[in-house]
Amino acid sequence: MASDAVLKYLVDTNRPYSCADITVNLRGAFTKTAVQKALDALSESAKIKCKLYGKQKVYAAIQPETVPVDNDKEEDYETQFKVVAKSLEEQSEALKTSESKLKLLISTPTTDTAISLTNDARTRIEVLESKLNVLRTSTQVLSPEEKRKVSELHSKLLSEYRKRKRICSDMIETMMEGYPKSKKTFLEELCVETDDMVGFKLMT
């Protein structure tokens, strides 16, 4: 049974552990739910100690009085509980930080993809600017339907431009986290030019 295995493990090791630690150390012999139920039952029957630190519970066996105690080597469970609880808290925070960075990296396009998207955008911008110059110098009057189509296309391209610019900015900020120099130096090394650097002004 899980209760017997958990109690024997705590008595043999004579150290405090959390439910997750015990589940792992028993090498998957029981599920975490089964281990937790066993710990609750053993704690209620006063066969083990349970200490609560914040949201984390830590358990330790109550050793029989017949076991000889070496006062010089007797463990300070209170101190151990605090150390374990602090370690678990730090690891939980580190895990949350790593998960956040992982989500950002997964949602960010690769460098090759970003370069390809940027080149495609520049090509389309050149084509559209060429068409825009023709329209500016043309005396031909557009029909309402043509104006509507032009307006819809402009709105679509404007939205796409802002979206890709945001993706590019997020990607740069992510890479800057481990970069020791300034952002200006970083952009120069990658041969990246911002709107401000080339004097580009968006027509909205």
Rank of each mutant, 00 (worst) to 15 (best):
T97Q: 12
R15I: 15
P144I: 08
K96Q: 10
Q36P: 01
L95C: 10
T174Y: 11
F186M: 15
I115S: 11
E193H: 08
R124K: 14
A60V: 14
V24H: 15
R148E: 03
T204K: 06
C168Y: 04
Y17S: 01
V83D: 07
D120W: 06
T108A: 12
R124F: 04
E188H: 13
C168W: 02
S151G: 04
T79D: 05
V192E: 02
S151I: 04
I167A: 14
P16Y: 01
E152R: 12
L102F: 14
E78C: 07
K49M: 06
K163Q: 06
K147A: 09
K37H: 07
E93P: 00
S151T: 03
I125M: 04
D4C: 08
C50Q: 07
K51W: 07
T137M: 00
I106T: 14
Q91P: 04
S159G: 11
S3F: 01
L158W: 13
S116P: 02
K181P: 01
E65P: 05
T79A: 05
T31I: 02
K86V: 14
S107G: 12
C50S: 09
S98E: 14
G28W: 02
I22L: 03
E129I: 05
A46Q: 12
G54P: 08
E160V: 10
V67F: 05
T79V: 05
E145D: 10
D170V: 01
D72N: 13
V69R: 15
D196V: 07
D195Q: 01
K8M: 10
N133E: 08
D76S: 08
K165R: 13
K183Y: 05
G199V: 15
V35F: 03
V6F: 11
R148Y: 03
N133W: 02
L190Y: 15
D170T: 03
T33H: 02
T139F: 06
V83C: 10
R148Q: 06
T118C: 12
L190N: 13
S130G: 12
I125C: 00
V141D: 12
S87T: 11
A114Q: 03
A94C: 10
G54V: 09
L117Q: 08
L104P: 00
R148G: 01
L52N: 05
S100V: 04
V11K: 09
I62S: 04
D76E: 06
T111V: 12
D195R: 03
L153G: 15
K131S: 02
E146W: 11
L95I: 13
F30Y: 08
E75L: 09
D76F: 04
E193K: 08
K184M: 09
I167R: 12
D76V: 13
L128F: 15
K183C: 04
C19T: 01
D72W: 07
P16W: 00
T204P: 00
K82A: 11
K37W: 03
N71M: 06
E152Y: 09
L104F: 07
D70V: 14
P144D: 04
R122L: 09
T66F: 10
A29W: 04
L128W: 11
M1K: 14
K96V: 14
T13K: 08
L52I: 10
V69F: 00
E177F: 08
M175D: 09
C50K: 14
L105Q: 11
K96E: 14
S155C: 13
